[in-house]
Nucleic acid binder design. Structure first.
Lengths: 254, 254
DNA sequence: GCTTGACCTTGACCCTGCGTCAGGGCCCCA
DNA sequence: TGGGGCCCTGACGCAGGGTCAAGGTCAAGC
């Protein structure tokens, strides 16, 4: 009666798809003619069109196999189930659309809006790209671990930028990025830093409380990698009674 | 610094995914420690989070690889492209939802609504399920080949059902389905059939014109398979000057 | 020093829904 | 008899990993 390609074209599917349906047990293997060609009747065409109809409605083939022999009740239950799956997939893609819409805005590759705003503020204040990238990478790590605390952190960081003495220190650190590890000028930086730390301890208790030690270590490592002088600076801070960087703590007097 | 599982948990992906990204060239292989373990720095965590962010936004991994090193312009172009793909996938699933909503209504597995209405009309008129299934299978084949002509066909078929003589013949054919191939009562059926054919030739020219010969042969085969008496009936029709079944044509006198 | 359990390593097979060879047989036409 | 167009089986490939398997490593507790 029909060859496989005739059958396939009747049903509007490819020859390969028909053989696939045979392999998956959706469509029974037909008789063969004397030379081994598959030989289909009209019933196969009808069955194949039913398969195609279900498959093109987004029903997984394993499910199609069950549904072809199912009663009306089972069939309707499955339809409900498949519709639920389709709705979930649509919602998922809609969320994806929202995310990539956010990504279109540059820095927000992995950062919430408040962090993007903070980085933009750094740019407005004339801080250099290199420093901003360092900050960005650090906050990407924080945002991945503690997304719910980002608003708090960003509020505190923006307050720092509003303080002229702190901002000046930031500007001076730009030059320090190029210093060798034993540059003597770092002493002055360390002194000013300690003064700022001791003047501004408010708010940072909450900050430190939610920051896991491991994350703080990782962020310290990012800082240490960012400039040669970093290690020296941390040592000088320890001499002045403060340990750490991300999560500063006063060294208790012995 | 970090083991693979620590890195994975920082970025919120599985260990397997990290190795997969290595294999796909998205994330460079890091140094190994003395026992062969991968040893990651903070930069890897940042990079992995960027990968995860893009991947979870529905960007294919091959595309992620290109985008990580891309400039802003290229990146934005890609974003537009990905958004287009997501919209297309959403539309596709919405169409799937519509189709399975139609499927929930029974016979419409591969049939347009007007065909479902026609089959329902047969049911109302008390014609048996077996005959309705035969019709359904035949119209599934037609709908697959000539969906745009289904309204015309169904209009003509419903007119047939409205004709009392035709309807009576349909009812009488039910009994004939069980007859042997040589039952003498088929002569009377053939006579009545020819009378109906010759009384009602209007409208069917259009019908026959758009029906490909191959499809007509297939439908004839469906009919021949459906009851033993079918072949005899076709022979008797030929004796009376009509050839075929799906696409009847008058045999020209020699 | 030995075991236990939690990690780590590479390699390989599994899923969906087919597309696309590769290597060969069959049929018809010139 | 040669060529082109069918057909056959078997196998690899895609994304995005999941899930073993078989073995090496590490720290802790006995």
């Amino acid at each position: 009666m029909l060859t496989i390609s005739q059958l396939a074209s009747y049903a509007g599917v490819t020859v390969r798809a028909v053989r696939h349906y045979h392999a998956k047990g959706l469509l029974p293997e037909p008789e063969r003619d004397h030379s081994g060609y598959r030989c289909y009747g009209a019933a196969a065409a009808v069955e194949l069109i039913r398969i195609r109809t279900l498959a093109s409605a987004g029903v997984p083939l394993a499910r199609v196999r069950e549904l072809l022999g199912a009663g009306e009740e089972e069939f309707n239950a499955a339809i409900v189930d498949i519709d639920r799956r389709l709705r979930a997939e649509i919602r998922e893609r809609q969320r994806h659309r929202e995310r990539i819409a956010q990504l279109a805005a540059g820095d927000s590759l992995a950062l919430p809006p408040e962090a993007v705003a903070y980085l933009d503020r750094m740019r407005e204040l004339g801080l250099p790209e290199q420093m901003i990238e360092g900050e960005r990478d650090a906050w990407i790590l924080v945002a991945a671990q503690l997304p719910e605390h980002m608003p708090l952190y960003m509020t505190l960081k923006r307050q720092q930028l509003d303080d002229p003495a702190t901002l000046q220190l930031y500007h001076d650190l730009i030059g320090a990025a190029a210093w060798e590890a034993d540059d003597p000028r770092v002493e002055a930086i360390a002194d000013r830093l300690v003064a700022l730390i001791e003047a501004d301890t408010e708010g940072w208790e909450d900050y430190d409380e939610v920051m896991p030690d491991e994350l703080a270590q990782l962020l310290d490592a990012v800082f240490l990698d960012s400039m040669p002088i970093a290690r020296t600076l941390l040592e000088l801070l320890e001499e002045r009674g403060w340990r750490g960087w991300t999560k500063l703590e006063r060294i208790p007097p012995i």
